[in-house]
């Protein structure tokens, strides 16, 4: 049963600012997210993967309603939430919470742990007595393994990276959300403690609170072992989507193939395949008349320059409901099946 459905979502940013430029000049647009579709089932986990500039973070912020989409529609629990304001927006915020990348930068340095967790309860006007709020805050601290007596008065700078991130998670779960959007939740933490944070989310909090998770990350190795399904993004478009294990072990799109073979492997004897990809990202995206990956694609053919490839389902079978069919946006792959 889908919790979140993103349909044709597009986000454009204007590059030049200034009133006069806007009126007289031709304002340059950056299409950060380009007609993205994906579905997230209740209780499942989904990963948005790609390199910097691919639009995954912007997509996450669109889901969080921290940005407004230029085009497209977002459905949450079968309700259209694309245009929300006022009370309805606040109600949405209670259900969808975010975990940010840099735990130190993303918390108000002047708020104690207690204040940090309480912030959502206050700002969203949750009807509770002071005592009830206090109990909820202390319970949230416990749920994220921060002993309330030790931690409640601590300020962010007094905490380690991992503790800070747990505090951030606490500030999100205290609101009892249905969906958690985690934007690079562990990339700024030491490798040896990343698993503890991911375990906290996946093994402890998910069953406890029946959470659905949307992960945004550039780290494919982590995504493979954490999420059910993954979408690979390039210049704002989804180029491949499907079960994480399948997409990342047997990638079909040339870009995904390049990405997965470039990931460093902690095995000195491993031989990487030759990376055929050329050059680096140079356009601002938005072309609708050709494949956006074509300039760098080692397998490109004539049709790639002339037509935009759409996502095509190439899966052989879907084993259970929670798995998205394997879809690829590539003329070469689409043609085959």
């Amino acid at each position: 049963m889908p919790l979140l459905k993103v349909e044709g979502i597009t986000k454009e940013f204007f590059l030049s600012s200034g009133f006069l430029r806007f009126v007289f000049g031709n304002p340059e647009k950056l299409r950060a997210v380009d007609h993205v579709d994906f579905t997230l089932d209740k209780g499942g986990s989904f990963g948005l993967a790609g390199e910097s500039g691919c639009g995954k973070t912007t997509t996450g912020k669109l889901v969080m309603k921290l940005h407004e989409p230029t085009e497209g529609r977002i459905m949450f629990n079968d309700r259209d939430i694309t245009n929300l304001a006022g009370k309805e927006l606040k109600s949405y915020r209670k259900k969808v919470q975010m975990i940010f990348q840099d735990p130190y930068e993303s918390l108000n340095p002047r708020l104690s742990a207690f204040g940090t967790i309480k912030e959502g309860l206050d700002a969203l006007g949750i009807a509770q007595t002071k005592k009830e709020k206090r109990e909820n805050v202390l319970r949230a601290l416990e749920q994220v393994n921060l002993d309330p007596d030790d931690y409640k008065d601590k300020l962010p700078f007094e905490l380690s990276g991992g503790e800070c991130q747990r505090l951030m998670i606490g500030s999100a779960i205290v609101l009892n959300p249905e969906l958690i959007v985690a934007d690079e939740p562990v990339s700024m933490l030491d490798v040896s403690i990343r698993a503890s944070i991911l375990d906290l989310i996946e093994d402890v909090l998910t069953p406890e609170l029946n959470l659905t998770r949307l992960y945004i990350s550039h780290d494919l190795s982590v995504l493979k072992h954490v999420v059910d399904n993954v979408a690979i993004m390039y210049l704002g478009r989804v180029v491949e989507v499907g079960k994480a294990v399948e997409v990342l072990s047997k990638p079909l799109h040339p870009y995904t193939k390049a990405l997965t073979s470039a990931v460093p492997v902690p095995d000195p004897n491993y031989q990487h395949e030759e990376l055929q990809i050329k050059g680096s990202i140079s356009t601002t995206g938005g072309e609708r008349d050709r494949c956006i990956f074509e300039p760098r694609c080692p397998e490109a053919v004539e049709v790639c320059k002339r037509r935009l490839p759409e996502l095509v389902d190439v899966s052989k079978s879907t084993e259970n409901e929670r798995e998205v069919g394997h879809q690829v946006a590539c003329h070469l792959v689409g043609e085959e099946s």
Binding site: E163, V191, S192, R194, A195, D199, S221, K224, L248, P266
Partner: peptide, 20 residues
Amino acid sequence: INSIPNIKLAEQKMVSIPGS
């Protein structure tokens, strides 16, 4: 070493070192 995720493995249980 055990906490490093390996994309080439089919399955991997991620582990961590407690504390800091």
